[in-house]
Design a protein around this nucleic acid. Structure first.
Length: 315
RNA sequence: GGGAGAAUUCCCGAGCGGCCAAAGGGGGCAGACUGUAAAUCUGUUGCAUUAGCUUCGGUGGUCCGAAUCCACCUUCUCCCA
């Protein structure tokens, strides 16, 4: 296969939670002299191991993994930060003459690399955000949407009045930079990516099987001590950190606070994980030039993955 | 054994004579997504997809007309024994 030489090829293994990305990626890395760059918004946090199903030392089989355990729960992280660090890691691995492999399920972070999303230069402004939320609260539903419409009608039009997260960010960007969110997005899209990704997406043909798998995995997390993990994070960092908003963490926190039983918490985690997987599937479906592997009907997934890679001239 | 009540669409749960294929929530399905993303938000959900057809435990009634009223049957819950 002939590639455009101008772009750098980049191997990506993505897929919903519980599809076996970790194991496959390690196998592949061993075969192609690769190193793994995680693309997971929760595994970046230290001490969040069980609930994020983080790769263990043994599972790594001495394949280097990047962007795991890089920030404390007390720090804030972002897609923009991820992009920056991932680019550095890619560079570093390439310089060693090895093959970087992006592995993970956080769609936004992936896009950040693959589309070269160029985020607004402004980071979040907590005070501004809080005051905007207060305004909506005081003046009623739709207030922020109307406010945004005054200077960025295009964006306001796209966002439902309930999508406060995006409404607030759109207003924030404008207030802090004088540039409209619409304009900001447009500029970002004009910059093309330097990468030519080879995307392999793992999934299940049979959705029920995926869901069963997720359920089992949650039970295993509990057996492995999720409750204790959350408890110690709570003691160390308090419970209002963004990181502890992750699935498995927020539910256990509720249980620890006596809001409901452990069993209820477990069911909530399963439910939340299934919903999450569904969202991931929706996201990855958009990757039109990705190759999809149905894990539940492929006997040897690592081999199937390598076969695909060899078609692209790797190996 | 006697008494009171309940059975609604995948689940929970409104409806209590027409405006009901039936509120609302959950779940399912589908979608969005550019510095919180494991977050946040949207649509859809009896079948046929026009007309129309079949639903509200079962059977039979009343009525122009019933998920809603009556009778009996079945199952369940609660109370007194």
């Amino acid at each position: 296969m002939i590639k455009k030489a101008a772009k750098t090829r980049l191997i990506v293994i993505c897929g919903a939670t519980a599809t076996g990305k970790t194991a496959v990626s390690v196998e592949v890395a061993k075969k192609i002299n690769g190193e793994i760059i995680s693309c997971d918004s929760m595994q970046v946090y230290k001490k969040m191991d069980i609930g994020t199903a983080k790769v263990t030392k043994q599972e790594m089989e001495s394949i280097p993994h990047h962007l795991i355990d890089i920030v404390s729960v007390s720090e804030s992280f972002s897609a923009a930060k991820y992009k920056e660090l991932a680019l550095m890691a890619i560079e570093e691995i390439k310089n060693k003459g090895k093959e970087p492999i992006i592995v993970g399920g956080t769609g936004l972070y992936l896009d950040t690399l693959l589309l070269n999303a160029n985020f607004s230069t402004v980071s979040k402004d907590e005070d501004l955000r809080k005051s905007l939320y207060d305004l909506e609260e005081k003046n009623g539903k739709g207030y922020l949407k109307k406010m945004l419409a005054e200077f960025d009608p295009l964006m306001a039009d796209k966002l439902p009045e309930n999508d406060l997260v995006r409404l607030v960010r759109a207003i924030e960007v404008y207030k802090l930079t004088g540039i409209t969110k619409t304009e900001q997005n447009k500029r970002s899209k004009e910059i093309k990516s330097d990468f030519e990704p080879i995307i392999i997406c793992l999934g299940y043909k049979n959705r029920e099987k995926l869901y069963e798998n997720i359920n089992k995995r949650v039970d295993l997390m509990i057996e492995n001590g999720l409750v204790q993990e959350v408890e110690s994070l709570k003691n160390e960092f308090g419970e209002n950190k963004t990181a502890l908003n992750g699935i498995g963490y927020k539910e256990i926190l509720g249980y620890l606070n006596g809001e409901y039983s452990l069993n209820d918490a477990i069911n909530m985690i399963k439910q939340g994980s299934r919903h999450y997987a569904k969202r991931q599937i929706t996201w990855f479906k958009r990757y039109e030039n990705a190759t999809f592997i149905n894990v539940d009907e492929t006997p040897d997934v690592p081999k199937a993955t390598l076969d695909i890679l060899s078609k692209y001239g790797i190996l």
